[in-house]
Simulated assay, not measured.
Amino acid sequence: MKPKLLIVDDDDALREMLRQALGKDYRIEEAERGEEALRKMEKDEFDLCLLDIILPDADGIELIPELKGISPSTVVIVMTGYPTVERAVDAMKKGAFDFVKKPFGVKEIRFILKRAVEEKKLREAYENLVEFADARFSFSGIIGKSKAMKEIFRLIRTVAPSNATILIEGESGTGKELLAKAIHRNSPRKNGKFVAINCGALPETLLESELFGYKKGAFTGAVSSKKGLFEVADRGTVFLDEIGNTSPSFQMKLLRVLEEGSFYPLGSTEPVKVDVRIISATNTSLEELVEKGVFRQDLYFRLNVVKIVIPPLRERKEDIP
């Protein structure tokens, strides 16, 4: 089927010339005004759009994001009789594929349109390939062909849309944070912040001040108040790596966040309410730490609503590139 082209220009003679020159190779629709172009774009799908900069009711360059917002795959080529480098750069930044100066010859515009069609086909082929590869061998950029990883991807697709807390177990280097990010990106919280912190890399006091924040004067050096990462990530996701290395005091405060959705910044008597999803990770068995009495059992149950165990790479050689 011939590519569909929308010509947006208030010059009747130019539109007629383009229709005569391009009609054999393209299915052509026309619009004289920006508002008309938007209406046509909403009703139909166009492969290409030839867009004049100066329209009776709109600035063509400012119209580009609106057109692309309706149809991201449409390739927009800007036409103008008053070209400047600044305008050309602005058009490209807003999503134009090319910029052509009026008056132009039939041969020139045919060449530009042909190149635009080829670009569109290449982009679509690439997107289809990425989609195929993602569906078959990966999840949100995480590659895995083994049966174990495919099962993990299936589980993530199931639990990502929920608010359930998730515990990820796996050796160092198995991609626990990548998995947590994938869960966040595929959840209703994807427009919120994803905040990660390594609990095992920070002393207890610093870990608490980073996560819960503090008020001015709470300790020596606290010259101003600071929001904690839990508050920063409100309506988003907090990833707590190496959760097994935390102290009993910190575990008790984290349990409060999970149970009540609130916490006290250091030096404050006023609780802060937050709505965060907590994903935690460990390279050791939390169950064993609970049995040894170094990890709270009630917190373990709260964190372990859904458990994902990532096998080491040596056990899934199919995933080695």
Rank of each mutant, 00 (worst) to 15 (best):
L258F: 07
M252S: 15
T284P: 01
L286F: 05
F230K: 01
I278G: 04
V276P: 10
V232R: 14
G261N: 08
K227H: 09
E288W: 01
E259W: 11
F230W: 08
E287Y: 13
T282A: 10
L254I: 11
L255F: 13
S247D: 09
L289V: 01
E260S: 08
D241T: 07
T220R: 00
T220G: 07
G236I: 09
P265Y: 08
V238Y: 06
G228K: 02
T282H: 01
E287G: 11
V238M: 05
K226C: 14
K253D: 04
T237C: 04
T284N: 14
I279Y: 07
V232W: 09
V274T: 12
G244M: 11
L255D: 00
L229Y: 15
F263P: 12
F250S: 02
G221W: 11
T237D: 08
D241A: 00
F250E: 11
R256F: 08
G244I: 08
E260P: 06
P248D: 13
V272I: 15
S247R: 12
P271H: 07
P265W: 10
V274W: 04
A281W: 02
A222K: 07
I278E: 11
Q251I: 02
T220V: 11
T246G: 10
D275L: 00
T269F: 04
S224N: 14
K253A: 10
L254G: 03
V232Q: 13
N245M: 13
S262P: 00
E287I: 04
G267M: 08
R235C: 08
N283F: 10
F263E: 05
E288Y: 03
T282N: 09
L240E: 13
F239I: 08
V274H: 03
P271M: 00
L289M: 13
K226Q: 14
I279H: 08
I243Y: 01
R277E: 06
E260K: 13
P248I: 09
F219R: 00
V223G: 05
A233H: 08
N245P: 00
Q251N: 03
I278M: 02
V223K: 14
L255S: 07
T237A: 06
V232T: 14
D275Q: 02
